[in-house]
Amino acid sequence: MARAVSTRRKAGFTIAAWIIGLAIFFPILWTIVTSFKTEAEAISSPPSFVFFNWTTENYTTVLERSNYFRHFWNSVVISLGSTVLGLIIAIPAAWSMAFVPAKHTKNVLMWMLSTKMLPPVGVLIPIYLIFRDIGLLDTKTGLVIVLTLINLPIIVWMLYTYFKEIPGEILEASRMDGASLRDEIIHVLTPMAVPGIASTLLLNVILAWNEAFWTLNLTAAKAAPLTAFIASYSSPEGLFYAKLSAASTMAIAPILILGWFSQKQLVRGLTFGAVK
């Protein structure tokens, strides 16, 4: 007999889960609500949750006054650029490890992973000095390079676990039919690999968008993505809660939406296949 679930029990779980879920989500909700207040209402006591004059003036101000679009664009270029570059480097590597495994494949994979364990602060100084000397400080190019390298192990690993699931017999068959390596990749492998590649892209864009060690340390006004732009609100300017909220809402909204689509990939990508 399957476990019969009483409606009452289900209702209890529902209430408990919703209360906890809303509590965890509350800071985000509060940020969004505050972004529609005037500055005076944002710090009014007692705070009001719904009944205030909703306004979009903060969004207009943030967009007009700061170079919001530049920072937004920097975030887009840096996160997409580093992910796409990473994919270009990682796809051939993951492909060959998944389909032509050699004796040392496992060791190579493990070694790649170990580079991810390197704490960024351990290499901050040399990277900073090298970038300073060759003029890459505060450039999008510099950040794309660094973020590509720090996410490359995750990209290779995710692709590897996806490629592993493509049945090798199909490749064998196409090889028998005389397909060249190039044909094999373009016509056989790619269509089957697209979902895995898309998932990898999604997760890595999210990780790169939110990366806040290198972006804070290697950029100033020019190439700063949103992470660094928002950090500038920690100065007295941050006392403008409504504007901080509007800027924050715009910075997290796109990735929050993408993130909700990537729950499954998140587990896979960040545990390196150790939890399925």
Binding site: I28, A212, T227, I230, A231, A251, I252, I255, L256
Partner: peptide, 10 residues
């Protein structure tokens, strides 16, 4: 899971 997607500075 939403907080995981919020950038650390925010």
């Amino acid at each position: 899971i939403a907080p995981f997607f919020v950038m650390p500075t925010v």
